[in-house]
Write a protein that binds this DNA or RNA. Structure first.
Lengths: 89, 89
DNA sequence: TAGATAATTAGACAAATATCTAAATATTAA
DNA sequence: TTAATATTTAGATATTTGTCTAATTATCTA
């Protein structure tokens, strides 16, 4: 899960996640939202993918990215532990 | 809030937060939990502090650190937006 | 005030990171 | 099969990051 925190530390990657929150997008559509070269965005997508935060699927010439909730939920659980405290002891 | 994500990306810093989850600790007590020099821990503490995730208070010779929940909650809200989705539109 | 203890700041350095350009791969369509 | 489009991979580079040692600051106590 450490990889997810690393992935979340970059603002470009967080913005990518926010974009995908609305709907799946292909790499080109994502890149169009940034003033950055496509290879750079591709690199960020690869980090998000290997951290488990997004998944990709080829659709013809395009590669469509979407959010994978399972790792998000793990990270959320980590935060929840800090809120719970009042309950026990 | 970007600073908080940056701060959370390092495993040592996350472990410090987990330690402080139990109770406030001074810099020396925190350093004792790691195989790392005190200056390195001090550096991590300073990053956590400037990100708003912890606060410090001098008590005599010691400086006691504890978690500041307000930024935690902001970060949590960011994650919540990814869960909510089902509700609107 | 001098010495001891707790912690930080300063400065150096290797490793990791984000970005770019150029080249390669994969798919579609003519 | 050739050309066009979408995307990634490779390689280079400047910046950021995490760590260390040495020096400094702050507090307490004898």
């Amino acid at each position: 899960m450490g990889d997810a925190f690393k992935a979340l530390s970059d603002p470009t990657r967080r913005k990518i996640l926010e974009l995908l929150q609305d709907k799946p997008l292909n790499a080109g559509e994502i890149a169009d939202c940034f003033q950055m070269t496509k290879p750079s965005i591709s690199h960020h997508l690869s980090i998000l993918k290997s951290s488990g935060l997004i998944i990709d699927e080829r659709q013809g010439q395009n590669i469509v990215y979407s959010i994978d909730m399972s790792v998000f939920q793990e990270v959320m659980k980590w935060f929840m532990n800090f809120i719970d405290m009042g309950d026990e002891k």
